[in-house]
């Protein structure tokens, strides 16, 4: 078990994982101007953690990002999204009416920007949490992935 022939994979992955996460946040916050958004960014963050799990083992990934955290994250994401809807309701508008968030007349876009950014964060949390929960549910059933399993 002490054979260390995955050293290149580990070194490359260690350098790649932060870049993948930064790219995910770029996709998240640049979604107003180019292709991308919360869904894609959530999947990319989930894939970064899954890459960590594939290289360093699922238990190590579960210690870094616990399954209890991922499934709460999924629920919190949906709550953030729905919360923007209720925020608009409390401001006197309709459900998810971003224009009502700051009582703006048509043509002003502050509420649209803030509302869309917050719901995209909700989508990010919901999607990445749900994807990681699914991955843990599948990968957690095999205690350890040995080399001869591939």
């Amino acid at each position: 078990m002490n054979t260390d022939h995955h050293v290149i994979l580990r070194v490359v992955a260690k350098m790649l994982i932060p870049v993948i996460v930064i790219f995910a946040f770029y996709v998240q916050f640049h979604g107003d101007f180019g292709p991308g958004g919360g869904f894609q960014a959530g999947v990319i963050i989930a894939v970064a953690i899954i890459l960590y799990a594939l290289i360093f083992g699922v238990p190590a990934a579960m210690r870094a990002v616990p399954p209890a955290f991922t499934r709460s994250l999924a629920a919190v994401g949906v709550m953030i999204y729905a919360g923007v809807g209720f925020w608009a309701l409390l401001q006197g508008g309709q459900f998810l009416e971003y224009q009502a968030l700051f009582h703006e007349p048509p043509g002003e876009h502050h509420g649209q920007h803030i509302g869309i950014m917050v719901i995209e964060i909700g989508v990010l949390c919901g999607v990445s949490g749900a994807m990681l929960t699914i991955f843990y549910a599948f990968a957690g059933r095999v205690a350890e992935i040995r080399d001869e399993d591939w």
């Binding site: 399954p67 499934r71 949490g129 749900a130 699914i134 549910a137 957690g140 350890e144």
Partner: peptide, 14 residues
């Protein structure tokens, strides 16, 4: 995600 977790377990056993 919830359905898969409920069907397959939360993966914490390993």
């Amino acid at each position: 995600g919830l359905a898969v977790a409920l069907l397959l377990g939360f993966g914490e056993r390993s």
